[in-house]
Structures are given as C-alpha cells and as structure tokens.
Design a protein around this nucleic acid. Sequence first.
DNA 1: GCGATGCTTCGGCCCTGGCCGAAGCATTTT
DNA 2: AAAATGCTTCGGCCAGGGCCGAAGCATCGC
Lengths: 231, 231
Amino acid sequence: MASNAAFAEVANLAGDPARAGMLHALMDGRALTATELARVAGITPQTASGHLMQLTAGGLLSVEKQGRHRYHRLASPAVARMLESIMQVAADAAPRKKTFAGPRDLALRAARTCYDHLAGHLGVALADALVTRGDIELGADAGIVTKSGAALFDRLGIELGANSKSKSRMMCRPCLDWSERRPHLAGHVGAALCKHCLSEGWIKHIDGTRAVAVTVKGQRNFRDVFGVSGV
Amino acid sequence: MASNAAFAEVANLAGDPARAGMLHALMDGRALTATELARVAGITPQTASGHLMQLTAGGLLSVEKQGRHRYHRLASPAVARMLESIMQVAADAAPRKKTFAGPRDLALRAARTCYDHLAGHLGVALADALVTRGDIELGADAGIVTKSGAALFDRLGIELGANSKSKSRMMCRPCLDWSERRPHLAGHVGAALCKHCLSEGWIKHIDGTRAVAVTVKGQRNFRDVFGVSGV
DNA sequence: GCGATGCTTCGGCCCTGGCCGAAGCATTTT
DNA sequence: AAAATGCTTCGGCCAGGGCCGAAGCATCGC
C-alpha cells in the first residue's frame, strides 16, 4: 500500500527529539523564527535549518518570509490535532516517569493554550463550569452549546461564526487533557473562547511559551462570569 | 520539559516503516500474531519481535498470550485516534504522489474499517444519507443523533449504550476521511453501526485486511434502510 | 518422549541520518 | 560601501538502530 510510506514519513518527522521540540514550541499557533526554534530545540541554527526544511517539505509546517526573518508555523489545524493526539498517547503510556514537575511544567499544568484553545487546570475548570451551568453539554465524543450557552456567548460578545451555517445547534469538540485527564473545550467554540480571553486581557502568554497566566482582571471575570475561582 | 521526550518516543515508534506497517495492519482493531505482523511488514519474525517489544513497551500495543501464540492489538482507542490523525496529515501533505492505486488501494477506498467504525466511500455515503434523512446532524467538530435517528437505531436493534448516561442527547464524532476528504461517522455511534453491519452480514472483511466487501444482503439493506445504493 | 511450530535472544554487519564547523547568500543597518 | 544579522549549503564525522542468520526457549501435537 502506498499510503503506508507517507504515514511513516510524517510520524518519523515528529519522532526526532529536535524536531519534536520545535513542533512542541509551535503548538500554541504562533509563528517563530528559525533561530528561536533552534534555541528551544537545543541545536545550532544550521542543524535547525535542515530540520525545518524537512518539516516544511513533509507538510507539517508552513513558512512565511518577512524581511530577513523566516516565520514558521504549523501548516494546519489537522497538524495541531495530530500533535495533540500524540501527546495524549505519550501521557497515557508514560506515567512511569514520576517526573518531578519543574516550575515550567507546573505553569503548563495550571493553564496553557493547546493550539487555539485553553487547556490545563484552567481549561478543564472552565469546561466543568459551563457544563454545570448547563451552557454546554459534553460527551466523550462531542459537545453542543445549549440555548443558554449561546445566550451567554452572545452577551460576552463572542462571535460563534459557524452560526452562519445551516446547523441549528452549535457543536464543539471535547479534547482530553493530558495533564488533568479530563476533557476541556476545543473546536470552534473552544477557539473562540480562548481568543476572547486573550483579547480581553483575562490571560496572557508567559514569556514565549504555551503556558498562560491568569491576570487579576481574568480572575475576577472567571469568578463572576463562570463561577470559576482559584485559578 | 519532560513530556517532550515521551512525545518524541511515541512518534518515533510510529515513524519506522516496518512498525508503521504493523500499526497500519492493526488499525481495524483485530489482534494479530507476531508472524502475521512480520509478513505484512515484510521483515523476518525475529526483527518483528524486536519491533513489537518496543511498541508494547512504548504503550502503543498490548499483548495477549494464548498458547504458543501471542496476539498483539492496539493498546487503546487513543492510539487508534492518533494513527487516524497521522494518516490524515499524511494524506493532506502528500497528494504529490499520483500513486496509481492498485487493486488493494481501490478496495480500501471503497470501504474499510477505521479501528471500530466504517470509512471509505461506504462510510461517507452512509454518513451523508443519515444527515440527509435528518437522523443525525454533523458539524466539523461534533455531531448528534436526532430523535428520528434514535428511533431508527432502536428499530434496527442497535444498542446505543451511552443512553444510560444522563446525557439527554446522543453525541457522536465526525472523522475526516483521508480518501474521500469528507467526514464519516465515528465515535460511539459509528462503532455501534459498524458492529451491527458486521454482525448482520451486510459487510465482511476481505482476506485479512481493513478493507471490507459489501454483501448482496448488505447492498439490499443499505438501499432499503438508508437509501444508499451503488456501494 | 520427539519433532514441529511460534517466538525470542544474541552477535555482528551496515547504512541512514543527525550533528557541527566553515563558508556562502540575502537582507537590513550605518 | 561596509558591517551586522538571519539563514542556508557543504563536507565530514560518528553513533544509533534496523536488519538478518544462528541458536535458544516455550508450547503444542503425535
């Protein structure tokens, strides 16, 4: 079968430690330069250049040239979902490592972005709160936004663009959280919510990682709007 | 970050051509012996043995000893979803290969199982029919079974076990088909439907692959029950 | 028991592919 | 111009790991 070779090629691209580090760093959806990626992967720029070429040729990354910089980002949401699913299996399979969580790990577990939506303790807490309040219904495979949820998002000024579709109900995707082992909110709705939190200044990226910090304003709003405190 | 190493390890396991072939062969959810897997991967049994040990140690496979045979299967649905998502990216990224589809490829494209549900032309046609008839609603991220759909499945004797949950509506997962580039039906509902088709003799596995053939009885039922013909 | 079958371990071959230093383009800055 | 910055190409080094043949354990059938 021909598709087999392509499969191994893609998996192999993600299977090198240096390349895995780069993909990991790109999982929050931002675009990074080759030198930045070399630094996070712990290799020299010329080695990184080779890896980036392979990743681009393999369809995992797309490049945007801008002056003397070249910005690399994940090629598509499908790539992000693939990376998420690999992380899921990796987290399932290797709880053997009692990896004493360093400060960076702790920050990631508390709250992080997962390509375009929120994950970590914050992400799960928000999903829980929305379910408890009856704003969304979440199953193992899928979720939907209820009438009250649609009203809530509307009140917050969150645009659920897919309303333009003929779908009578907004649907969303649950995403199993590798650190909390419980689902958080992904898909269109999760992305819109995350975007809103960032633009309202409720959360902000820590230095240049996927970890996010909840601002004072965010703490107030998460408590008042969603009934979520202690994040 | 510690989880990075585990990520690369898992991806690397799937990234070797021989191991990829084995995983591919296991994607229909059956359990195969080491020798069978060696054959599909095109390697000797002793080489396969090493690969299988790695895959098991990495948490991708689970082994069941039975007499002098050792049956290997995917360790969890999470692994199956990971493999699906990699195939998705691989299919997206490599349409360069004008791969003249051999007969095996053609059979796979017509109808196949995707771990526990139906894919290929048949899977997409069934999903389309169910949507058209109003039995399910399918978005990009999620789907739900409508009242009429629940009645249909009940009439067919398909048990949607998750009804026991407090969920008021049955939800299901759409899965982007790599050959058709359109969603087919996955998740709990997709699995139940596939199981029903197999047990009723509407479809059956071709030799020992993921490809399935539609029986005469199946053609009649797909036409009469779902309005799907020409499969 | 004895041989056949399924699978694993061991040892050694070989080659892919990741790594870096040095040098070469391209673009921006002074 | 000339220097600085970002990135890529080239060449050579080297280790990791996939592969098989041969031999060693298990389990089944006679």
